[in-house]
Amino acid sequence: MLDGIVWFFTNIGLAFYNFFYAISHPGLWLDWSDKEAIMRFVYYGGSVEFFFVVFTAVLVLTAVGLWRNGFMWGCVRVLEGFANTVGRFFAWAGLIMVLQQVIIVFIQRIFARPDISIGLGIPLEMDISWWAEELKLYNAMVVALCCTYTFVQGGHVRVDLIYSAVSYRTKRVIDMLGSVFFMLPMAILIWMYGWYFLWRHLITPKPSASDTVDRLLMKARAVRWNVETIGFSPNGFNGYFLFKILLVAFAGMVFIHAVAFFYRSFLEWKEGPESENKYLDKDSLGEGEEAFEGTH
Results as ranks from 00 to 15, higher is better:
175 D>R: 11
45 G>W: 01
110 I>Q: 12
283 D>K: 13
243 F>Y: 12
116 I>H: 00
106 F>N: 02
118 I>L: 14
276 E>W: 15
126 M>A: 11
132 A>E: 09
261 F>T: 15
90 F>S: 04
277 N>E: 08
193 Y>K: 04
181 F>P: 01
157 V>W: 10
18 N>W: 12
38 I>K: 01
205 P>R: 10
108 Q>V: 05
93 A>Q: 10
154 G>V: 14
191 W>A: 05
205 P>V: 04
178 G>F: 13
242 L>Q: 11
129 S>L: 14
170 T>P: 03
6 V>L: 08
247 L>H: 04
240 Y>R: 15
236 G>D: 12
86 V>H: 04
77 R>G: 10
27 G>I: 07
224 R>T: 05
285 L>G: 15
37 A>G: 06
218 M>Q: 09
183 M>V: 15
140 A>E: 12
84 N>I: 03
85 T>A: 11
260 A>Q: 13
256 I>M: 15
6 V>Y: 00
243 F>H: 10
126 M>R: 11
195 W>G: 05
95 L>D: 08
181 F>L: 07
39 M>R: 07
92 W>N: 03
217 L>G: 06
246 L>D: 08
158 R>E: 11
28 L>N: 06
284 S>L: 07
286 G>L: 12
281 D>I: 10
224 R>L: 04
87 G>L: 10
168 Y>E: 09
265 S>L: 08
62 T>P: 02
18 N>S: 03
242 L>F: 14
108 Q>Y: 14
259 V>H: 01
137 L>Y: 14
209 A>C: 05
249 A>C: 07
246 L>T: 02
273 P>I: 11
263 Y>L: 09
152 V>E: 09
133 E>N: 07
20 F>V: 15
133 E>R: 09
82 F>S: 07
292 F>I: 05
39 M>P: 00
274 E>T: 11
208 S>E: 14
48 V>R: 15
86 V>N: 02
